[in-house]
Design a protein around this nucleic acid. Structure first.
Lengths: 195, 195
DNA sequence: TCAGTGTCTGACCGATCGGTCAGGCATGCT
DNA sequence: AGCATGCCTGACCGATCGGTCAGACACTGA
């Protein structure tokens, strides 16, 4: 969420979040943001070094959580990795659905920016985990479709509560993911998903 | 330097398709396209009324198939609609994966253009059909995630054949879609694309 | 030979973009 | 009073965008 900071800095951030979710990052000009806040474009650039810095500050909380999920996935394999990836990503997507909607479709271009240097690798690892680290095309395809689809879609259900959306998405992922047929190399430390 | 080739129109179209898939519609300038073709920007605008017309001609075949699918869905309900929607959309997504990749993320903005006026309604009906015309949030969410995810992802599997991608996606959709509890009113009499 | 036609181009246009800069204004400290 | 600091602004910049236009060039049929 956009932190509710009083003052111009927070107002700019909030306005940018609103505009970005409607017209996208590229489709929103600094002029647009300034107009909504009621200040000049120069004021926006006084509070933020440039447009990219504005986006980076907006996305920082979501990126932190994504990095945390990546850490938790390290070393996990098979069904355990699948379950952690599913729960972690669904939770992240629901909590930060507005922030994710900002990136709608502009992910590839935005990933080139320095502030988002490692996101691509993290999301690749996330996709691999969701596929149970399987090389089967079906597993890879399902994982990518789910990640992309959830990212794309979760911003469109503003009328659904976080809890409802989370449980619906988690149900969907568990049903859609290709099960890992290979037995777990190590017993899962967390609770099994069907016991 | 200037090649009086009668195929310039097609060359421009092909170059535009390549550029759009790499950098998107908005991210590709007429200058970029002209440079790849080896002509001037004015030549591009001699063959196409404007940038939008270029995109429209590029997308026309895919849109025709989408419209055809929409016609076939008219009147169908429940599981029959689900199955036709699933097969039809997966087939469309695979066959036109390059064209769909062009729209990557720019769908909302592009839908505002006159050439794509009815696409939004068609895709809404497609989503409803895939949800089995159910009002349950879970069904609506699953349908949207699948449609968005397939659209987003199908362009990224250039190394997978059409047949393999199609069967993998169809398996995924059938597994992921919420089943309609109402019995089939009729066995699916799916007559495929008529020639 | 010449007018007509289709193809193509450089020069140019207004609009908009992200970003810079010098300076105005209020406030508060010394 | 004098000065520093933080916040804000209008004016401006170079770059790039989609699009226009008059005219150059090659080819054609009469």
């Amino acid at each position: 969420m956009v932190r509710a900071v009083p003052g111009t800095h927070g107002e700019i951030l909030a306005a940018a979040a609103r505009q970005f979710t409607v017209t996208g990052y590229r489709g929103t000009s600094l002029q647009d943001i300034a107009r909504e806040v009621g200040c000049s474009k120069a004021t926006v650039l006084y509070h933020f070094a440039n447009k990219e810095a504005l986006l980076a500050e907006l996305m920082a909380p979501a990126i932190d959580v994504l990095r945390d999920l990546d850490d938790r996935l390290a070393g996990l394999t098979g069904a355990a990795a699948q379950e952690v990836a599913a729960q972690g990503f669904v939770d992240l997507a629901v909590r930060f659905r507005r922030e994710i909607a900002v990136l709608r479709g502009e992910f590839p271009e935005l990933l080139c920016q320095p502030a988002f240097a490692h996101i691509q690798q993290i999301s690749d690892r996330l996709r691999d985990a969701l596929a149970g680290h399987s090389e089967r095309p079906g597993a890879r395809i399902a994982a990518l479709v789910l990640l992309a689809g959830i990212s794309e879609a979760c911003g469109e259900f503003a009328d659904i509560t976080d809890d409802d959306l989370r449980s619906a998405l988690l149900t969907l992922v568990r049903r859609a993911v290709e099960p890992v047929d290979a037995p777990l190399p190590q017993p899962p430390t967390t609770e099994d998903k069907d016991s």
